[in-house]
Design a protein around this nucleic acid. Sequence first.
DNA 1: AAGGCTATGTTGACACTGTCAAGATAAAAC
DNA 2: GTTTTATCTTGACAGTGTCAACATAGCCTT
Lengths: 200, 200
Amino acid sequence: MGNGAQNYHHGDLRSALIEVATSRLAAHGVDSLSLRKLAEDAGVSRTAPYHHFKDKSALLSAIAAKGFSDWHATAKRIFEQTSKSPRARFREFVHEYVGYAAKHPEMYELMFGRTIWQNQAATPDLKEVAFPCFQFQVTMTRYWQEHGLLPNDKAALRLAQVTWGTLHGIARLLIDGIYADSSHIDEMCDCAADLFMQPR
Amino acid sequence: MGNGAQNYHHGDLRSALIEVATSRLAAHGVDSLSLRKLAEDAGVSRTAPYHHFKDKSALLSAIAAKGFSDWHATAKRIFEQTSKSPRARFREFVHEYVGYAAKHPEMYELMFGRTIWQNQAATPDLKEVAFPCFQFQVTMTRYWQEHGLLPNDKAALRLAQVTWGTLHGIARLLIDGIYADSSHIDEMCDCAADLFMQPR
DNA sequence: AAGGCTATGTTGACACTGTCAAGATAAAAC
DNA sequence: GTTTTATCTTGACAGTGTCAACATAGCCTT
């Protein structure tokens, strides 16, 4: 079976679908993702995807899962730059988070939008990747608390929820284009970072 | 023309559509809003709505506009309770904001979701209502700065964006059910309020 | 090696969706 | 009373997700 030949059996349709979906997502947005178009892009018929994904939501979840593991890696990389001070890393993290959202708006929309999360529609696979991602936020928060960067009199979990909420909110306001001009991204990030960081 | 009769001309289809849409929104969610169903609910044929709204997005915008003016009134009411201290009002505002989102998740989703805002799809009517709503947030922020409640060394606009971002983020995490249990709403709100308010 | 099982792919069909075009009706304007 | 205009109608089209029934081909067992 040649890799690109028009065989009856595709070979690895699952991966192929995720691939074409990811590129289409970045190019034309989450709303343009239709199973039928994706199937066509992958060179198979409309209903072939159903042998690899329970339904459309499951396919989207699979794409989002990849986004989460990517972001998780990025966050880890920033956090583990021991050469930089905790304060510098915190600030960088804030910028990087919002920057990621601004740079990959469609992926971010998919990852954190209601499409795949509402009605407990999230796939176990997705939860398995997304949950550690938030857990890491708690870990970082605890670290920043220990280094006197965030207030120590609050539960790390609570604090992590609020800080993430802030980043998430800024990201959404930018993505949805509600009012925040993207040219002000950096200023907003610095403002948020300053607000959270305790005076040293 | 009797008000409820099956006349050829409905009388006030525009209002009727918004009404049935609003109730259907609260009951079955934003995704269940289809022009055809709404038309049927209103007792007219599929394409009748097009004589009152440019397209589906315009109808949704009209509903959201009502939500914005409602929220604007609520915010005003809280802010103008001169009997309470600024700090108390700030805290109440935070709780009320997230509470509104948790109580009317579908309306909130519509108001702040990407559906009506993406691609500059927002109707002038909508902007006309939504913009003062954010403007008011800036006004409040400035007031809180003057009363030493929020840091004075930051631009009110920037600060307003960040605080709103936080509330928005918390609301979204709750609505999307990503991880925040709704039983922790109050704790999260207090945590956020404490973080922002300068020690007196 | 022969036969059957199973994973994977196919076409056909159904009930939806938003939206346009063309015609019907009633109210309002002249 | 006639014409214009706003409103509502049916018909049609291109999409959508998803199910059912059928086809193919590779794998497993005997």
